[in-house]
Nucleic acid binder design. Structure first.
Length: 305
RNA sequence: AGGGGCGUGGUUCAAUGGUAGAGCAUCGGUCUCCAAAACCGUGGACGCGGGUUCGAUUCCUGCCGCCCCUG
């Protein structure tokens, strides 16, 4: 089999476990498709796979960065594509498991990113004197078709489009036009889902578990090591909520409530992405009998090839 | 118990004698490197009763509920 298996779904649905189960069946290695589990020292809050949970299955792209490092989709794309080749050449099955939709799509599809530096801070400064409307008009003047795809309030993306043109001399829209927008692997997309209410319950429970496992201690030690809200790693749910607390702006209860809330909102955004971006095979996870779901997926994949 | 204050969508808070507006939450959506991010759209409310008035959420009043002070 020369297939890449992709397991996605909202946070808390059971992707990690599914990845391991599928790896056992298909002689696979798991590649994490997650923008935050790449960071060392961030174990509890990112619900990172534990040693026991891996059951001996190799997991790539976990613990590859320090929390002070920044990271990019492009880097992810390059690293994972290499990993996939490596695993395939060993005759094993790559199993990409994660919740970061853009990272996964960029890797599996023929996305090509411009050779620009990661400099959104500079761009922010450079154009601080323009309001949203003015900035948008500027983009309209240099790359109209990209502008039309964006809302003028989405300053982050407007700036990005401007940056691409300024640094490469090529318009973002032109770049996109060169791509085919197709999946470059023989991939089988497994989308895991459960009833929304149930998912939210699970998310809430999982946050309670994180609390008991010592999330506060984990975050405190990062904080003491000098990590701030500005670091990319500290944008993660489960971590960013603590800064208000450390600054005396909210209570400890608020921290956990916010983590729950942000996780729920994240799950919702993941659903809309996965529903609309991939040729997905959806599976309702059987919570009383996880193996049933595994069996069903295994059958479907075997019938595919 | 006495004095004062407050009761507006899920929540925090506005405004107004001519049937109410915002933030957050909710729900839906967008997506080519900050993506666990950024952004867009959406439904939903004047505690209950009486009075004044052409008309009350707004003024008066009774009740209920909550908060503060005093004892």
């Amino acid at each position: 089999m020369n297939k890449v298996i992709v397991v996605v779904g909202p946070t808390g649905v059971g992707k990690t476990k599914m990845g391991v189960e599928l790896a056992k069946v298909f002689d696979g290695e798991v590649i994490s498709g997650d923008s935050m589990q790449i960071y060392k020292q961030m174990d509890i809050g990112t619900a990172k796979v534990t040693k026991e949970e891996t059951q001996g299955i190799i997991h790539h792209l976990v613990d590859i960065k320090d929390p002070t490092d920044s990271y990019s989709v492009k880097e992810f794309q390059e690293t994972v594509r290499k990993k996939i080749q490596e695993i395939l050449s060993k005759g094993k099955t790559p199993i990409l498991v994660g919740g970061t939709g853009l990272y996964i799509k960029a890797t599996l599809y023929d996305y090509e990113f411009s050779e620009t530096q990661d400099n959104h801070e500079d761009m922010k400064e450079k154009y601080a004197h323009l309001d949203n409307h003015q900035l948008y008009n500027y983009l309209m003047s240099i790359d109209q078709s990209s502008a039309l795809e964006l809302h003028e309030n989405n300053r982050q993306r407007v700036l990005r489009a401007i940056g691409i043109y300024e640094q490469t001399g090529q318009r973002k829209s032109e770049q996109l036009a060169k791509q085919k927008h197709e999946c470059i692997y023989d991939a089988y997309f497994v989308g895991l889902t459960i009833d929304r209410e149930l998912l939210y319950e699970r998310i809430n429970q999982r946050v309670d578990v994180m609390k008991n496992l010592g999330l506060e201690k984990e975050v405190c030690s990062l904080y003491k090591n000098g990590l701030t809200r500005a670091h990319q790693s500290m944008k993660a749910i489960g971590y960013k909520e603590w800064f208000d607390y450390f600054e005396g702006l909210c209570s400890l209860d608020d921290v956990y409530e916010n983590i729950k809330k942000h996780s729920r909102q994240y799950a919702k955004r993941q659903y809309t992405w996965f529903k609309n971006q991939f040729d997905m095979h959806w599976y309702e996870v059987d919570l009383t009998c996880f193996d049933k779901t595994v069996t069903k997926i295994v059958e479907d994949i075997k019938n595919e090839k």
